[in-house]
């Protein structure tokens, strides 16, 4: 808990920079708006104002600084505007409404969770196979490791279209993308985890005349848990990114990705920013959930790191 003050300081500093940046970022828009409303603006034509930087214009028009925080369509919304938009679309709308971020969040989250479940199950099964079969290890493992260096996310638009043209739409294509994004980290982490018992521990089980199934359940699997949880945390955030990106190029009508795109295309930056922060909070909650499960499990097993 002694890190709490430093963490809050850093977060506070980031917020402060953000709040300060709002003024110069929005100044040109504010000045145009103020002129239309009949206020005095110091270089009088928009063409002259183009020659100024945002900061220069702010210094020339100190009276307009307050107005930069109240634009309807700001270039950079201030934190309170984003928070207001989020409050409105999360708490004040009916959650079945298309206006509700909870609705859009659920669309993305359900694809993420389904894909994550598929991806981790397959990943764990493959890892078990790799650890027990030498041919599989030598054939598959180099590819699984290489896949970590490749931007496989680029496959996302194609998978949507591919599955669309054989008649599969909606949740499943997004889940497939989430699944393969969470699949490889789990394979690599789980193989490392299942191999983490050292030779001495394996030898002990051999002197007990334990079968390889017994060695798996009593030693390898428990020993792999710290690695598995680390992979889960990487996998779930990859799965969420996958589901969001899957919504982008295909004109999906619901989901965080769709909200970002809508805000982008219809010039409603607040919608984009609210969706972005809601996605970030979702990711944080998911990763936090796995971190909590990790702590609980490892403590029960006596493996918690101090």
């Amino acid at each position: 808990m002694k890190s709490l003050v430093p963490i809050l300081t850093i977060v506070g500093a980031i917020l402060l920079i953000w709040v300060l940046a709002v003024v110069p970022m929005n100044m040109h828009l504010t000045a145009d708006q103020a002129q239309r409303d009949g206020l005095a603006v110091s270089p009088e034509t928009p063409a002259e104002r183009q020659g100024y930087s945002g900061l220069g214009l702010s210094i020339a028009n100190p009276a307009l600084v307050g107005l930069t925080y109240t634009l309807d369509r700001p270039r950079l919304p201030s934190p309170h505007q984003v928070a207001g938009e989020m409050w409105e679309t999360i708490a004040l709308r009916n959650i079945t409404s298309r206006q509700s971020l909870v609705y859009h969040g659920w669309v993305t989250l359900s694809a993420t969770l389904l894909g994550f479940a598929i991806g981790t199950t397959l990943g764990i099964l493959l890892a078990v196979g790799i650890v027990h079969n030498r041919a599989m290890d030598m054939s598959v493992m180099p590819w699984a490791i290489a896949s970590q260096t490749i931007p496989i996310l680029a496959l996302a638009p194609m998978i949507i279209v591919m599955m669309g043209s054989i008649g599969i739409q909606g949740l499943l294509p997004k889940a497939v993308i989430s699944a393969y994004l969470s699949f490889f980290p789990v394979v690599v982490g789980m193989v490392k985890g299942l191999r983490s018992p050292d030779a001495m521990q394996m030898d002990l089980l051999r002197t007990y005349y334990a079968s390889s199934a017994q060695a798996f359940w009593k030693l390898r699997l428990p020993a792999s848990l710290p690695y598995l949880f680390a992979s889960f945390k990487i996998g779930i955030s990859a799965a969420l990114v996958g589901a969001i990106v899957a919504e982008l190029p295909t004109g999906a009508r619901a989901g965080f990705g769709a909200r970002m795109l809508v805000g982008d295309q219809y010039g409603q930056p607040l919608v984009t920013w609210a969706a972005l922060f809601a996605a970030a909070i979702t990711a944080a909650v998911l990763v936090g959930l796995f971190a909590a499960m990790e702590r609980l499990t490892l403590r029960r097993m006596g493996m918690a790191q101090a």
Binding site: R75, S237, V245, M260, G263, P269, A284
Partner: peptide, 13 residues
């Protein structure tokens, strides 16, 4: 751990 790639539309703008 956040889906930072979501800032893309903002930066493109």
């Amino acid at each position: 751990a956040l889906p930072i790639v979501g800032i893309a539309p903002i930066f493109v703008k």
